[in-house]
């Protein structure tokens, strides 16, 4: 028997060298990316759904719906009806109003988590990739350490010392996701730090922080966008998980995760109350992962980031 050849690590030939060629994304290539994205039906449906969610989150208060915190204990845990399209919860509160209010809470929380992750991860990543040496070694070991922990366990531990509550939960989730953005920033900075144009601005005496933000960061916008789109889906799942465990949003506010928690507490009386928030979580997470896939394909497979 002859020795069977072994597989090579699969590294697809770059379709476009958008992120790696050291030039800032030009307007023309950006419109090419948009054109490719528009041709992707799944990604466009996902983008439409996300736009709709943002609209509901922003303008939900204007909808002619009952007060999401108004209790009606006689009509508790009722199924869908003319008065309550999605039924009521264990306090007789209208599920549809609460779902709309929770959309706002959930999206704001996801934005908060994403901001923490980006603000912590990206600048440190750019710095580590640009200066290298001991800074890079120390920061990268910390990122490896954080990445070696199950995300939910790490988030739980941080909430455990900081105390429950939506803001603490989102900071914890942001810390969990920061290493991924660190890696994107680091590889973007590494790939261009020896390019001539960077050496030119360095020779001009431009301060490091300005080089990082004005000359290196724009280069990584593609991979960062892909990473962010995937991350939002994971962050929404993480928020829902923490709120389901009672460590995220606190009563009487509601996020989709805490609505599932309330529904689950009364699962033996009625199973309907769980369905609307669970469906919203699933659809939203799915939409962000489809959009992420679409963006990645449109930007070319080399822009995957990590």
């Amino acid at each position: 028997m002859t020795e069977t050849p072994t597989t090579e690590v699969v590294t697809p030939a770059p379709e476009s060298t958008l992120a790696a060629d050291g030039t800032t994304t030009t307007r023309r290539s950006r419109s090419r990316v948009m054109r490719r994205l528009r041709r992707n039906r799944g990604a466009m449906i996902a983008a439409g759904f996300i736009a709709l969610l943002i609209l509901v989150a922003a303008l939900g208060g204007l909808l002619p719906l009952p007060d999401p915190n108004k209790q009606d204990l006689v009509n508790r845990l009722s199924g869908p009806s003319g008065d309550h399209w999605l039924g009521t919860d264990s306090f007789g509160r209208d599920t549809l109003s609460r779902l709309v209010a929770a959309t706002r809470v959930t999206l704001l929380a996801a934005t908060e988590g994403l901001l923490v992750a980006v603000v912590l991860g990206v600048p440190l990543g750019l710095l580590a990739g640009y200066v290298g040496g001991a800074t890079d070694a120390i920061l990268s070991r910390i990122a490896d350490g954080l990445l070696s922990l199950p995300g939910l366990v790490l988030a739980l531990a941080i909430v455990g010392v900081a105390g429950p509550g939506l803001t603490n939960a989102m900071v914890a989730i942001g810390i969990v996701f920061a290493p991924r953005f660190y890696r994107v920033g680091r590889s973007a900075a590494q790939s261009v730090s020896h390019e001539t144009y960077i050496e030119a601005v360095r020779a001009d005496g431009v301060p490091t922080s300005r080089i990082l933000l004005r000359h290196i960061l724009p280069n990584s916008s593609g991979p960062l966008l892909v990473q962010a789109s995937f991350a939002v889906g994971f962050i929404i799942t993480a928020e829902a998980s923490l709120s389901f465990l009672g460590l995220g949003v606190q009563v009487p506010d509601a996020s989709w995760g805490s609505m599932v928690r309330e529904g689950f507490a009364h699962v033996h009386e009625s199973t309907f109350a769980i369905i609307p928030p669970a469906v919203m979580i699933t659809l939203t997470v799915f939409a962000f992962s489809q959009l992420g896939d679409g963006l990645r394909d449109a930007l070319g497979r080399d822009s995957r980031g990590s």
């Binding site: 889906g233 799942t237 829902a240 998980s241 389901f244 599932v260 689950f264 699962v267 033996h268 199973t271 769980i274 669970a278 979580i281 699933t282 997470v285 799915f286 992962s289 489809q290």
Partner: peptide, 22 residues
């Protein structure tokens, strides 16, 4: 696969409890 990758596992757990256990 895409469908199941998009669903948080606690939603799967709840669906299983409701359908197969309760």
């Amino acid at each position: 696969c895409s469908f199941f990758l998009g669903i948080p596992s606690f939603v799967v757990a709840l669906v299983l409890v409701i359908l197969l256990a309760l």
